[in-house]
């Protein structure tokens, strides 16, 4: 599981199950072995599998009652799914074999990745897709739509393969970089350097820092470091002030 989502409005957690082509929703207070309250699964969902990669994250947009599921080719190691690379959007209350509300995919989207990652900014109505850069779309984009902006190029310092999140209150995108974590504005466009960078590898000696959570209450960010099996908390007041 490379990403899942907490929905603070409805107190639910949303998890994808790549091996069964499903999206599961649990109560936010879930503990132990408890059945999901909703399962999206079946042929109408158009959810392909993960193959050797892909389909490893999911993101809820509780403000608009939607669930975003990035889909990739899965061709990371070996044969891919042969399916599209893009984003499926489901109704949050969808249950059973339901079709997606919309699908964002096609050559103009520039989503070309075996394992794309997404984040939603419900305040500024944006969808950010990490796929060879940061592709910024209108939140409701569908079909073969061009991104509004693209953050890509040598000045970015490159992107790692892990989680991506948006701190919508400040309009900031947080994603892992080649050496740790980096922050861009949702208004950035083109080959631009990040606003901030946390070179986690340099600071802690660890690598593959792939997960992130923003903790406004404490002006902190938490970073999951897969290769060290640890979670680091950084005091990061600049992000919130």
């Amino acid at each position: 599981m490379h990403g899942f989502s907490y929905d603070p409005i409805h107190d639910e957690i949303v998890v994808n199950s790549p091996l069964t082509q499903a999206i599961l929703t649990f109560r936010g207070s879930v503990n132990g072995e408890e059945a999901p309250i909703r399962v999206i699964q079946g042929p109408k969902t158009q959810i392909l599998g993960m193959g050797y990669a892909a389909l490893s994250t999911v993101t809820a947009d509780p403000a608009h009652n939607e669930i975003f599921l990035p889909i990739g080719s899965g061709g990371y190691r070996g044969a891919g799914t042969g399916g599209p690379e893009g984003v499926l959007v489901f109704d949050r209350m969808g249950n059973g074999d339901v079709a997606p509300k919309r699908m964002l995919a096609g050559p103009d989207t520039q989503i070309r990745n075996s394992t794309p990652q997404v984040a939603v900014d419900p305040i500024h109505n944006l969808l950010v897709v990490k796929s060879n850069g940061l592709l910024i779309f209108d939140r409701t984009a569908e079909g073969n739509t061009k991104p509004l902006r693209i953050i890509r190029g040598p000045k970015t310092g490159g992107f790692g393969g892990g989680q991506i999140t948006v701190y919508a209150e400040k309009g900031l995108i947080l994603t892992n970089s080649m050496d740790g974590w980096a922050v861009w504005s949702i208004n950035d466009d083109g080959d631009v350097a990040p606003r901030w960078r946390i070179p986690v590898k340099q600071i802690t000696g660890g690598g593959q820092n792939s997960g992130i959570a923003v903790i406004p209450k404490h002006k902190e960010i938490m970073i999951a470091s897969a290769l060290q099996n640890r979670v680091l908390t950084f005091y990061f007041p600049e992000l919130f002030d």
Binding site: P8, D11, I13, V15, G162, A213, M222, A224
Partner: peptide, 20 residues
């Protein structure tokens, strides 16, 4: 922990989810 790859924060409970 089993190769922790992602996090999610529950502000109401002031808890962080760590999927494995």
């Amino acid at each position: 922990f089993g190769k922790v790859e992602a996090l999610a924060y529950d502000e109401g409970r002031d808890q962080v989810w760590v999927p494995n």
